[in-house]
């Protein structure tokens, strides 16, 4: 993975020195060589890779070319912002998507089912960046107000912090919730047709027990898988939302770093995203075992 990240970045044409000279409006070849040497990007790629791995093993993530500062100092403050936003968006999607999916399945082919399906279809069709922009422009047009455009620390102003995060979380979470709703609905419909559910109804168990204890518990596995994938996707996929709501997160910064060819920042951020993907998959596997005893026993 690290090799792929490292090599791919260097295959893209141009480097940080080109970008720096672009900001000055000219290029001087001898100054360029001097600067490349100063930044260590004149070395062969394999030597740069070894240097990076060696640093990584010693807990040194390298130095941002753009900011002339340790990569960790640059990346550190961004991580909690993105993790919080992704977590809030995931919570929003679960709170809205799963109950809506259950309702839609239980009330299949009713007006409520049709309305919820249209809502979910809209969620999948509308890009979250468009929705984010509409939220911002709508707020400013109708209320003359938008959330803070600089990061509000929860320690300083918890209410302001929540307001700042809830709107983007809703904009992103809506799409995920639409996906969850559809997965929950189809999984529930499948389970609701099973013999043991029919038996439960026949035994005269109350509806809530049948749906929550018998049906949902068995239908939830594919939903959990999707939640895990969505969370991992959000960590790296919040670029536009972070940009529209001006949140200083990982995804927005990653794009900036790519445009600046700030290799140490890109390498470490991509590695971070890869670690989150692996960890969220691991968590989903563990949840499988907890939710379904058959998985636990078979393993």
């Amino acid at each position: 993975m690290s090799v792929v990240i490292f090599v791919l970045m260097r295959l893209a044409p141009g480097d940080i020195v080109d970008v720096l000279f672009a900001a000055a409006g000219y290029v001087n070849e001898s100054d360029k060589q001097f600067l490349m040497k100063e930044l260590g990007i004149d070395k062969p790629i394999w030597a740069q890779y070894v240097d990076w791995l060696r640093g990584l093993a010693a807990g040194d993530l390298g130095k941002s070319y753009r900011y002339d500062q340790s990569a960790w100092e640059v990346i550190g403050p961004l991580v909690p912002v993105t993790v919080e936003l992704a977590a809030l968006a995931t919570i929003f999607s679960i709170l809205f998507g799963v109950p809506a999916g259950i309702l839609s399945a239980v009330r299949q082919d009713t007006t409520l089912d049709y309305v919820l399906r249209v809502v979910s279809l809209a969620g999948l069709s509308l890009p979250s960046f468009w929705l984010g922009m509409v939220i911002i422009l709508g707020l400013v047009a109708w209320a003359g107000w938008i959330p803070a455009v600089t990061y509000v620390s929860p320690r300083e102003d918890l209410a302001g912090h929540l307001v700042q995060f809830l709107l983007p979380a809703a904009a992103v979470g809506y799409r995920s919730s639409a996906l969850l709703m559809r997965i929950t609905r189809s999984a529930m419909l499948e389970v609701l047709r099973e013999d043991y559910v029919r038996t439960a109804w026949a035994k005269g168990q109350n509806g809530r027990a049948v749906i929550w204890r018998h049906a949902l518990k068995n239908a939830i596995l594919p939903v959990v898988t999707v939640i895990g994938i969505e969370f991992a996707f959000l960590i790296g996929g919040l670029v536009v939302t972070e940009t529209v709501f001006n949140l200083p997160g990982v995804a927005r910064f990653l794009v900036e770093a790519i445009l600046w060819r700030d290799y140490p920042i890109v390498q470490n951020l991509v590695l971070f995203i890869a670690v989150v993907v692996v960890l969220s998959n691991l968590l989903v596997d563990l949840l499988y075992g907890w939710l379904d005893p058959r998985v636990r026993y078979s393993s």
Binding site: L139, V149, N246
Partner: peptide, 21 residues
């Protein structure tokens, strides 16, 4: 003075209009 970095142009001017800038 606080120079607030807002990358998205639409958000920049929405913030100016809303009095955030």
């Amino acid at each position: 003075i606080r120079y607030v970095i807002v990358k998205e142009r639409g958000t920049r001017f929405a913030a100016l209009q809303a009095g955030r800038l």
